Simulated scan of single mutants.
Amino acid sequence: MIVGVPKEIKTREYRVGMVPAGVRALTSAGHTVLVETNAGVGSGIPDSEYQRVGAQIVQSADEVWKRSEMIVKVKEPIAPEYERIQDGQIIYTYFHLAGVDPELTRTLLKKKASAVAYETIQLDDGSLPLLKPMSEVAGKMAIQVGAACLEKAHGGKGILLGGVPGVRRGRVTIIGGGVVGTCAAKVAVGMGAEVTIIDINLERLTYLDDVFLGRVATLASDTESIAKSVREADLVVGGVLIPGAAAPKLVSEALVAEMSPGSVVVDVAVDQGGCIETCVPTTHDNPTFVKHGVVHYCVANMPGAVPQTSTYALTNTTRPYSRKIADMGLVEAIKADKALARGLNTYNGQVTYEAVAKDLGYNYVSIFDAIGAKGGR
């Protein structure tokens, strides 16, 4: 199979879809890998490292897309890339179709592209192995950027999360006790903040109470507990996920308006539409805005700011599936691997992930009905 790795073009997205070890795994198996020139520079990987393991360095993104049977990326294609998508092409990346430009889904369907979404590849135990590493990075970053936004010079109220003796510590409310919430809590506790985690799963709250040895407060999620904790917080982190679907709006605009001026919200779920009603996607160039006196940080590709950590963490998990698709072809790979099958969001002009179909108003066709109707790659 011919596999292409274009340079990411989203604002300040420095990650790359494949590292040299991933290239070697494919070229050693007889596959061809095309890497756009300088695709890995932002992650500290020069073209020479790709050439050393057998990649062909290609001068333009147009050529990479045109020649490749499968594209391996980090973030979803954005508008300038839509016309580059080839008919029937496999695209293996984060898509978050329910939370991004609806035109992307229309383009994928029109071109009968196979969208294999990192975020919906799901093991039988319900875990999301390709989402986990970036959720870990984003969760830890949420506290770092939140703490910076609380500084007066950045529009915040001027609170130090860890406080000092004789002065109260900063209050952090984390909505969602999954990977994002747990990693955010680790950093917040480490900085000395007063931390509350809210989740709907009581078993998860029991686990968190145990692992944090009582250093965080845990609350069962309901309207009242969310309202009270958000009103009192200096920093609110949104970390709620429903695989493939739009995030539920758990913090209303009215509630944000009740927060004290200079408070901060960081919505890690913004790439799925956000769980805080006032949040809209921002970029690393302009990461924040103020609404109702509250500083909002809503960058949809947070881990792109720390590419030397996040690229390698991500590609450690994406590599086995890209190798399987290349070796077996997409259809046979899906038949052989249920987790990978759950990652297929569009195929042959049909939406094959139920939550995406529901949120975007398309007819849902099961994966195996779709691949049964047409062979394909």
Rank of each mutant, 00 (worst) to 15 (best):
I2F: 02
I2T: 13
I2M: 08
V3H: 03
V3A: 09
V5L: 12
E8R: 01
T11D: 15
Y14D: 05
A25M: 12
S28A: 15
S28C: 04
E36W: 08
G40V: 07
G42V: 06
S48Y: 02
S48T: 13
E49A: 12
I57H: 09
E69A: 10
I71G: 10
I71Q: 11
K75P: 01
I85K: 03
Q86Y: 14
Q89K: 06
I90M: 15
I90Q: 07
I90R: 08
T93D: 10
H96Q: 01
A98H: 00
G99N: 01
T105S: 11
R106C: 02
Y118Q: 03
E119Y: 00
T120L: 14
D125K: 04
G126H: 05
S127N: 09
S127C: 09
L128V: 00
L130I: 11
E136N: 03
V137Y: 01
G139V: 07
M141H: 04
I143C: 07
V145F: 15
K152I: 14
K152A: 13
H154S: 09
L161V: 03
G166V: 09
A193Y: 14
I198E: 08
D199L: 07
I200C: 02
R204M: 12
L205Q: 08
L208E: 11
D210L: 13
V211R: 04
G214H: 11
R215P: 12
V216H: 07
A217R: 15
A220I: 07
T223F: 15
E224H: 11
R231H: 08
L241K: 00
P243M: 09
K249I: 12
A257F: 14
E258K: 11
P261C: 04
P261F: 12
P261Y: 11
S263W: 14
V268G: 00
A269F: 01
G274T: 03
D285E: 15
P287N: 04
V294W: 14
V295K: 00
H296A: 06
V306L: 13
P307K: 00
S310I: 02
T311Y: 12
Y312G: 00
P320T: 06
S322K: 06
A326V: 10
L330R: 05
L330A: 03
V331I: 14
I334E: 01
K338F: 05
G349E: 14
Q350V: 13
G361N: 10
Y362P: 09
N363C: 04
Y364G: 06
D369P: 08
K374M: 12
R377E: 13
R377D: 14
